[in-house]
Write a protein that binds this DNA or RNA. Structure first.
Lengths: 189, 189
DNA sequence: GTCTATAAAGCGATAGAC
DNA sequence: GTCTATCGCTTTATAGAC
């Protein structure tokens, strides 16, 4: 019996997980129909431009989530220290303590990046800029703040790669703790 | 006019670059025939098991290269400090100062990992273990050595992701310098 | 060892009934 | 909004001539 009145936004999380597991090129429509429970008709109704539009919708949702839960607090919170602690907590939660990869980072590595270059570039750029802002508010010089932001955002991506390569999420958790500790030492907390 | 007497080992570097650019799933045989200049007949002559065997050959070559140029010196060199400097130099050269990604790291992220899990796992494991050995030889406690090795190998992977996301190889070069400096400070050089 | 021709399957995408 | 049927194309892989 066909489901009715499914909403476009309902399928986006499932699409995200499929792209994470198979990559953009490896995610086939048959896998997508199976996992979402929607036929091709429904999928093309929601995403007339096919797989490309699905990936774009996923990237937009990621963008929104990080802006609301991580980037905006870093930029706007009066208490910069707790906004940085919040970042580590939320990021750890988002990546399921290392059991989930970063889709944007995965897209960045191969030619998939070229199809979504603006979104891929901005995700990391805004993340680093927001963290830099919070660090400057804690008294760090602009140059130092930028450098540590680059180290932290890069360190998180690398820990996700390493954790998956060893099938050991604890590698990610350890990296997060190490990076948080280093930031807190630098800003004297 | 058909080339004759091409050798299997001749095509492996080209295969590596194709997999880096397109990922395993995204690398099509038509792209491979085009870039290697070999017809499907020749390719299946060299790699009877098709794409899978091609990727395996690439991973084997990567394994050999890193063992000879990076891992073995780390484990065996009498001068542990210069073996660590050598590591940073060789790794920087291998990844073309951030213009080339790590194929093993890319494979690790999606389900491609499951097809080559042993090789993917061992590449990073042996890298971290070799670096740990060199660090212990410089007087670091085992626990500290393991932690810094994890940080450095992860940091390199993350920097590759970040550099490509921003299309800015300098991010990778900066990370390499930062990581080398941190190691040298820790072992008191 | 190389090539071309071809097979069989799967792909993304579309059309049209309901 | 959902489905099934189908299109045209590309895919991986094989066969067989040279």
């Amino acid at each position: 019996m066909p489901k009715v009145f499914a909403e476009r936004s309902d399928v986006i999380p499932a699409l995200g997980e499929i792209f994470r597991e198979y990559g953009f090129a490896g995610a086939s429509l048959s896998e997508i129909t199976e996992r979402t429970g929607l036929g091709k008709g429904s999928l093309y109704h929601f995403f007339p431009n096919g797989k490309n539009e699905m990936a774009e919708a996923v990237l937009n949702e990621i963008d929104t989530w990080f802006n609301e839960n991580v980037f905006a607090p870093l930029r706007e919170s009066e208490d910069a220290v707790s906004s940085i602690r919040l970042m580590f907590n939320e990021v750890n939660r988002y990546f399921k303590s290392g059991k989930r990869i970063c889709l944007v980072g995965a897209f960045a590595l191969d030619h998939t990046r070229d199809h979504f270059s603006e979104k891929v570039c901005n995700y990391f750029k805004i993340w680093m800029n927001s963290l830099t802002t919070a660090l400057k508010r804690n008294g760090l010089a602009k140059k130092d703040a930028k450098e540590i932001a680059e180290e932290v955002v890069g360190g998180i991506q690398g820990a996700l790669v390493l954790a998956r390569s060893q099938d050991d999420p604890k590698i990610f958790v350890r990296a997060m703790k190490r990076l948080e500790k280093r930031i807190m030492e630098l800003i004297g907390e």
